[in-house]
Amino acid sequence: MTVEYNPDQKIPHPAMWGVLYKSSTPFWEGVKNKKIMLQKCKSCGNLLNPPRPMCPKCQSQENEWITAKGTGKIYSWVTFNEAPHPAFKAPYAAVLVELDEGPRIVSNMVDVKPEDLEIGMAVEVTFEDVAEDLTLPKFRKAG
């Protein structure tokens, strides 16, 4: 299943109070272009999600961005049987996906019912335009 939204309610936007953190902008630009971008420290190669202005391993403020393959495994999940926000229709699952590159990312599933989810399930990314100004990365069963 896919998360269904109540059309008259605004989905929480990553640009809280109209401000998107500049260090997060490449990630959201990537999503708009149907890519998952990961921040990589130029100095030590550390991959970081969520993005941040300084590498916690080596304190370098220089970084670059790589495109993730978009494949990974379900690492954990929760099922909402009651919607915690009026924009969402329950039931739906929020999943934590471990990308093949290492970092983990929070998302929703497409075409998988919460009861069919399993830890370790191979998944791949897909992109959904959920609002006029918002695209979200979501995952479906791989293969």
């Binding site: 953190y21 500049k22 260090s23 941040r52 202005p53 300084m54 304190q59 403020q61």
Partner: peptide, 24 residues
């Protein structure tokens, strides 16, 4: 600044740490 507040904070803190002669 053209930068995030988090970004600015990291730089100022690094400068204070260096000034003191400490490690992060």
């Amino acid at each position: 600044s053209g930068r995030d507040e988090l970004d600015l904070a990291c730089e100022a803190i690094q400068n204070a740490v260096d000034d003191a002669g400490l490690k992060m």
